[in-house]
């Protein structure tokens, strides 16, 4: 049994987000800044009649921000009724991993609860994200469902 993932990249690291959680991908276009919001929150975008908060994954993962470019993507995820746009450096792959290929995170990284597991490929490792934990551990204003 295999699960489909959207593979994205933040800095030099590839992350896999379960396609089931992903509603869609968008180019980064108009982000409206929201003063007073948390540090990782870049602002809000308006997508298909919906106002969606943008979480900067670099900022969320403790990396320095970079300017958006053609490769920058917003990965729109939906958890229950929450919709959040994750800003990543790029997202251009769609891949399916078997459950056997998904290894649990090492003990040393157990405290990083947003990691669901690791997929080892020939020349790279792909970290599988637990979107729920990623979002829960952060105090976001919730977007309308």
């Amino acid at each position: 049994m295999t699960q489909p993932y959207v593979v994205c990249r933040v800095d030099q690291t590839h992350y896999a987000i379960p396609a089931a959680d992903v509603q869609q991908l968008e180019m980064v276009e108009q982000i409206t800044r929201v003063p007073g919001s948390t540090e990782a929150l870049d602002g809000v975008v308006y997508l298909r009649g919906q106002v969606v908060p943008v979480l900067n994954l670099r900022s969320r993962l403790g990396l320095p921000r970079v300017d958006y470019d053609y490769s920058s993507r917003l990965v729109i995820v939906r958890l229950d009724r929450r919709v959040v746009a994750l800003a990543v450096d790029s997202a251009s792959e769609f891949a399916s991993f078997s459950e056997e290929a998904c290894q649990p995170a090492p003990e040393a990284l157990a405290r990083l609860d947003y990691l669901a597991g690791v997929v080892a490929q020939e020349n790279r490792l792909i970290l599988i994200l637990n979107v729920r934990r990623l979002l829960e551990s952060d105090n976001f204003p919730q977007g309308d469902a």
């Binding site: 959207v6 089931a20 869609q24 991908l25 251009s92 792959e93």
Partner: peptide
């Protein structure tokens, strides 16, 4: 090209769904 890639990914997501 990026948009095409994006659209194909979205299409893949939809197809998976």
């Amino acid at each position: 090209a990026e948009r095409t890639n994006l659209l194909s990914l979205n299409a893949s997501i939809e197809a998976a769904r």
